[in-house]
Design a protein around this nucleic acid. Structure first.
Lengths: 201, 201
DNA sequence: TGCAAAGCGGACCCATGGTCCGTATTCTTG
DNA sequence: CAAGAATACGGACCATGGGTCCGCTTTGCA
């Protein structure tokens, strides 16, 4: 690549920060009580370094997110798993939502930090856009389903980080139960009523 | 009466603050750029007064909310409208969700401020608890519907303030269209499949 | 080895929620 | 109506946290 690679101290520090942040967010109840200064300190780095590497808090969160999300994204794009494009829509939709839920269960704090993240709503983020677009397109292929756009929003809303945190964290709902509930719910949305489902085409 | 009423200057100031806050939140794009100092200034009052009257930012928001929400709450509790307890569950659920949606459409900024409101997730607020509890109970009465608790959460999630704001505000989805989409969605969730409930699982 | 360029880091800035306390207003009681 | 107690007022003040600045250090190319 033409563009210079970053200096090795920069690269090292970047990694250190990512690791420290990851640990800190995982350790603390609420993302709010992990400050940028904390992250810098834990990484053994100055605040200036931190901000130069990631721009701002959102940038740091985004970087963490991308790292964690890579595998899933790959599975969705090209994989042969139920997430991949080869899966028929009515099976792929639940699989996608289950994947989102699992991701948020596995990365509760991070997802929370990213999603509520203060200033802007999650709906501005481009990763949301991507998921919504994908889901919308898949829904579109299910015959008889109207309002794919809104439906995609509504389904994704059922997996919002703070809801997941509330249920899994405070209400102590076990992982598998949540997955089952979401699956049932999604199935219900996709399985439109008996009488009028026949004539659809 | 045992407990003294508040002094009249206090009462007057309280009103002034509520009014000023209402106006300010309505005028600004994001709740974030209405500061407590702004509110105090607009009300012609000192910050001390503001904080004494409402405790903190959340308290002010809550007070505003309660005022706005009163009518709906009454309709739900005792009214004869479709919101009231007399309505059969399968009709009441859509009515309730439509009411929530309309409220958030009519009070976009306020709802946004209240819901994302920074520190704590909406799921901690007791007004959410109330709505969720009510919806859960009504859902419970619909035969064949399982997981009422989760379903209530998921349905309410479809009316979250930031989603409403995103759709109505940025995406310019007209009010009636949103209501229709939500209604369709809710109907789909409530209209579960035939006896054998599909082979899915 | 020399010397830009890139990077470092922590002192510093500033906005904002929230507190404090001396002063002003209101209520009560005689 | 007087006067003291109780309550409220308000803006200076504080703490916190994101983000910036800039003199010094490290890196890496020649």
């Amino acid at each position: 690549m033409p563009e210079h690679r970053s200096r090795k101290d920069a690269a090292r520090n970047r990694e250190a920060v990512l690791e420290a942040a990851d640990t800190l967010f995982a350790r603390h109840e609420s993302p709010e009580d992990v400050t940028m200064a904390d992250v810098a300190a834990a990484a053994g780095v100055g605040k200036g370094t931190l901000f130069r590497a990631f721009g701002d808090r959102a940038g740091l969160l985004r970087a963490l997110y991308e790292g964690r999300f890579e595998p899933i994204r790959e599975a969705v794009e090209a994989g042969t798993s139920p997430l991949g494009p080869a899966t028929p829509p009515q099976d792929r939709v639940p699989a996608l939502l289950d994947a989102v839920l699992c991701f948020k269960l596995d990365n509760r704090r991070l997802a929370l930090a990213l999603e509520e993240g203060g200033s802007s709503s999650p709906y501005g983020a481009e990763h949301y856009e991507r998921w919504h677009g994908l889901l919308r397109d898949v829904l579109e292929q299910i015959p008889g389903l109207t309002d794919s756009d809104f439906t995609a929003h509504a389904l994704l809303a059922a997996t919002r980080a703070d809801l997941v945190e509330h249920l899994a964290g405070e209400k102590r709902v076990p992982r598998e139960r949540m997955r089952a509930q979401l699956a049932t719910y999604v199935a219900r949305v996709l399985a439109f009523g008996p009488p009028q489902s026949i004539d659809r085409r």
